[in-house]
Design a binder for these strands. Sequence first.
DNA 1: GTTAGCACTCACCTAATAAGAGTGCTAACA
DNA 2: TGTTAGCACTCTTATTAGGTGAGTGCTAAC
Lengths: 348, 348
Amino acid sequence: MGLNERKLKILQAIIGDFITTAEPVGSRTLSKKYDLGVSPATIRNEMADLEDMGFLTHPHTSAGRVPSEKAYRLYVNEIMKKKELSKREKDAIAKKLYENVSELDKTIEHAANILSEITNLTAFALTPQQKHDRLKFINLLPVDDSTVVLMIVSEAGKVSNTALRLQVPYTEEALSILSKSMTYNYKGKTLSEALTLDIIENFETDIEAMGGLAKNIMPNFMKTLEEMLNVNLYMEGLTNIFNIPEYNDIDQAKMFMEMVNRKEDFTKTLISREDGLLITIGEENSDESMKNCSLITATYHVDGKLVGKLGVIGPTRMKYGEITSVIEYLTENISNAFRLTGGNNDKE
Amino acid sequence: MGLNERKLKILQAIIGDFITTAEPVGSRTLSKKYDLGVSPATIRNEMADLEDMGFLTHPHTSAGRVPSEKAYRLYVNEIMKKKELSKREKDAIAKKLYENVSELDKTIEHAANILSEITNLTAFALTPQQKHDRLKFINLLPVDDSTVVLMIVSEAGKVSNTALRLQVPYTEEALSILSKSMTYNYKGKTLSEALTLDIIENFETDIEAMGGLAKNIMPNFMKTLEEMLNVNLYMEGLTNIFNIPEYNDIDQAKMFMEMVNRKEDFTKTLISREDGLLITIGEENSDESMKNCSLITATYHVDGKLVGKLGVIGPTRMKYGEITSVIEYLTENISNAFRLTGGNNDKE
DNA sequence: GTTAGCACTCACCTAATAAGAGTGCTAACA
DNA sequence: TGTTAGCACTCTTATTAGGTGAGTGCTAAC
């Protein structure tokens, strides 16, 4: 028994209807609402077939049909068409996105916000992983008798610094030597390379000479590098799930909230996902807590190098077509925003 | 009709019982559970009096009594005793709190986390308002042909910097002059003073000479100052409310989540509250969305100067005594942690 | 192959009933 | 005069039963 055109048409109608109404759809409603050219009885026969084939399920005998995850998978792979966004939508998105383009993090946060507002789902965005970002500039600046500022700039333009209060007095000369020595050792290295460098060895001889200065500073340097490697997770539209029938139940809502609030786990899940547009439906998710969710993620690029991710999470019943269109438009424009402006806040 | 000792004892028992069980408490349970020395009938008479006085309410005729907000107010003001924390609890708190004491923000976040775990409520903490923090160090550092880093250090040890990509070439000399000029103009000023300074005037003559360098940099400087003035709000234990009977209802949970997710509003509410330990119960809250919550906030000090806030929010039925004890212990120790170590990561 | 007709199923809603917790009042007691 | 036992009464909550309607699956006719 194959999926002839009529079956496909009926399946598509069922999926489309269910996605918007969240109600099991019956043969009569189907024949009234959609112009299928056949009677409810025929539709019933076809639906029975579709159920045998695993595309539909039955909450109970006297209920309408509900698409299975297999149906969504088919829908995503073959039926759904990407919806071209209207000029107005595009403009609205672009306007918000370009609002504060000087800070990558802010833009990423905005992107998640836009996404959640358009989709009415929970949206998220990860700031880029900086693993391959290289150290460009390292400096130690005297601020006062007991305070120096450690400053690190990466090629991607990320700046990080910490005010260090030293336990021991220091001389500007020693500071300058250490600063130069660090630059010599680390400049041009990627963040992850830098983290594996055995610094103690490199500075062994100097440490005594500089009265513990390096001993004071290097641990902080490494800690700062680690922090630069951290990605930030932005989440928006958390409360949207309360408006979704699937989560109109305190336990469901709780489970969902708890899942997305385990930010480290969630971040790990996102990072480990393949690059590019990826849709995982229900059981396809490896995370136990996501087995009744669908997750859509996409990769964005900045300067053609760094990559981060953004996407949405919600019930398996979601508007896959529209959502992927918005996500793709967003990823393109995050890339563009930064390619065109070099991360500065002047638009071309 | 006054609040004689027996009435007070009964009221206390009712409040205590209701706080732990969340069930309306009846005369029989009361006489069985607590050793009041009188029969249920007597208790009933007293309860009727207490209800007339406004301390108790009646969900319906055949239900037990529930404390009114007036009762909680009395309880908080006069009955409740602060619970001395056990050594073990104190140690556990201190250990977590001192874990990463080099960064104020991290410590504040930890504090909120500890608080939510101990109280099983939603806890929050605001990083200090830096209004009166003074600028200590301003520097412009050349990184490459088109990039300079703007670095600002405040007396409180807050460091901020931004990599600026300039549209025009610059000379190190011009940069150095600008840097010195900025230091001259802003050093020692508080952040809020600095923000109101009319810089354009100060640099009018220099701007031409430095080929627009100042014009490029000053707006970013001001923006950075503004960011330094921002406070951060950390929230922990959001999903705890799902375990609270009062919020075991999708609409209640939704309202709560939406309230605490309006972070700007919430932050404003917190900032505008009086310093010190402050408990507001139900209707005492000016925020419409908090009228059925209780909010406890306290102020913490760092170096005896900067102040931030932390606290919990939950249903009016909460363990006021225990919670305030924990909050007070936390605020003291945040202060101590930074007083003793000067914000560095070595303990004394 | 398609359709009309019809019996059948099952969730859901409503009303009715029963059970249980707790009060308020009255009268007796110390 | 304050305290207590007793009891009728109230009101929620749980349970059950009956009715309704949406929708299916099957059969027989077209």
